[in-house]
Structure formats: C-alpha cells, structure tokens
Computed example of a mutant assay.
Amino acid sequence: MIRSIKSNPTIKLLGICFGHQIIAQALGGEVKKSSKGWGLGVSTTNVSTDSIPVWANLNKKEQLNLIVIHQDQVIEAPKHSHVILKNDFCPNYMLNITPNILTIQGHPEFNKAYLQSLMNIKQDIIPKTTLLEATKSLEKHTDEKIIAHWFSEFLSQK
C-alpha cells in the first residue's frame, strides 16, 4: 500500500510518531529502540536548511520545539528521503519522502497537559530522572502551529 502511495503523486500520506517509524521502515529505513533512552517532553529540533521543501520555508526559525514521547525511532532514513527536522537525540525527526509522504517523530497533535497525563500514567516504567527532565522541559514554548501549517501546505500541494 505505501509503495503504491509513493508512486502516486495525487495521494498524500502523513505519519506521526509510530506512523513515522512504520512508513520509514516499510520504505527501506531502519527503526530501533533508541540507545539514548526515552525521548520525552518538549524536544528542540533544528530545521535542516539544506533540504527544506518550498512549502515549509514559511518562517525564518532555525529551531522548533515539539512534544515527544517515544523510545523507538528511525535510525536510518529510507533512500531518497529528505530530513527536514533533526537533533542529536533523533537525527531523522521529520522526513519528506518523495513529494507525497511526510513523517514526523514528535506529537504536534498533543498539548502539554495531555503529555503530563501520559507521563503520570507511565511513571512506573520511565526513569525518575527522565521524568524530572521532561517535566522541566514543559516550561518551553511549543511550535505545533508551525507544524500544523506545514501539514496544511504539504497536503494542498499538487
């Protein structure tokens, strides 16, 4: 199914978190549990200016803050994909795979209160120091509106 979407430019596909991972793996990338532990809290990512698509070049920000909660991540991106967002913890944070597939590791659909609730539910399986750092990171602003705008622009491209 994903391969047929990849070859049909009229169909657009978005993948968020696990969707990001499964699409990347289905197209030849590699997904593994991160040796760095949990990605949790508000994560700062860098905009990759060398491969940013035209539809995403709508602001001059060099970094975006987004909510994350994951252990697995894309270790190796599929061939012909372009990294749009990256950081040291997650080097394949947001991928544009062909003109019609866009994936992201973070959760632009979450708000901080929802993440705090998830962290409370999972407090028995997440290391205490990771929870403390993630809770402190919730003080940062988040840029989910920029990602929502990028999604809208991506989906409206022909």
Rank of each mutant, 00 (worst) to 15 (best):
I2K: 06
I2P: 03
R3Y: 13
S4D: 14
I5S: 09
I5P: 04
I5N: 07
I5W: 08
S7Y: 10
N8H: 14
N8D: 15
P9R: 14
I11Y: 10
I11F: 13
K12I: 11
L13N: 04
L13F: 11
G15T: 03
G15E: 04
G15M: 05
I16N: 05
I16Q: 03
C17S: 11
F18K: 02
H20M: 06
I23F: 02
I23A: 06
A24I: 04
A24S: 15
Q25L: 09
A26G: 09
G28H: 04
G28M: 08
G29F: 08
G29S: 11
E30S: 09
E30V: 14
V31K: 03
V31M: 07
K32Q: 12
S34R: 03
S34N: 04
K36D: 06
G37L: 08
G37A: 07
W38I: 08
L40M: 08
V42F: 03
V42M: 03
S43V: 06
T44V: 12
T44Q: 14
T44W: 00
T45W: 00
T45E: 01
N46W: 00
N46S: 12
N46D: 07
V47K: 02
V47L: 12
S48I: 11
S48L: 08
T49L: 11
T49G: 00
I52A: 06
P53M: 12
V54C: 10
A56Q: 05
A56T: 04
N57G: 12
N59A: 12
Q63V: 11
L64D: 03
L64Q: 03
N65D: 15
L66P: 03
V68S: 09
I69E: 03
I69K: 01
I69D: 01
H70Q: 10
H70N: 13
V74E: 00
V74Y: 02
V74N: 02
E76S: 12
P78C: 10
K79R: 10
K79P: 07
K79Q: 12
S81D: 02
H82M: 07
H82K: 12
V83D: 00
I84F: 07
L85H: 02
K86L: 04
N87H: 05
C90G: 00
C90S: 13
P91Q: 05
P91W: 03
N92L: 04
M94A: 13
M94G: 00
L95R: 02
I97G: 05
I97K: 02
P99C: 08
P99R: 01
N100L: 10
L102W: 01
T103F: 08
I104D: 01
G106N: 07
A113I: 07
Y114C: 00
L115T: 01
L115V: 03
S117K: 14
M119Y: 08
M119I: 14
N120G: 12
I121W: 07
I121F: 14
I121P: 00
Q123N: 15
D124N: 15
D124M: 13
I125Y: 04
P127N: 11
T130C: 13
L131S: 12
L131T: 07
E133L: 15
A134W: 01
L138R: 10
E139P: 00
H141P: 09
H141T: 15
K145E: 13
I146A: 10
I147R: 06
A148F: 15
F151V: 10
F151Y: 11
F151N: 05
F151H: 05
S152Q: 14
E153G: 15
Q157R: 13
K158Q: 15
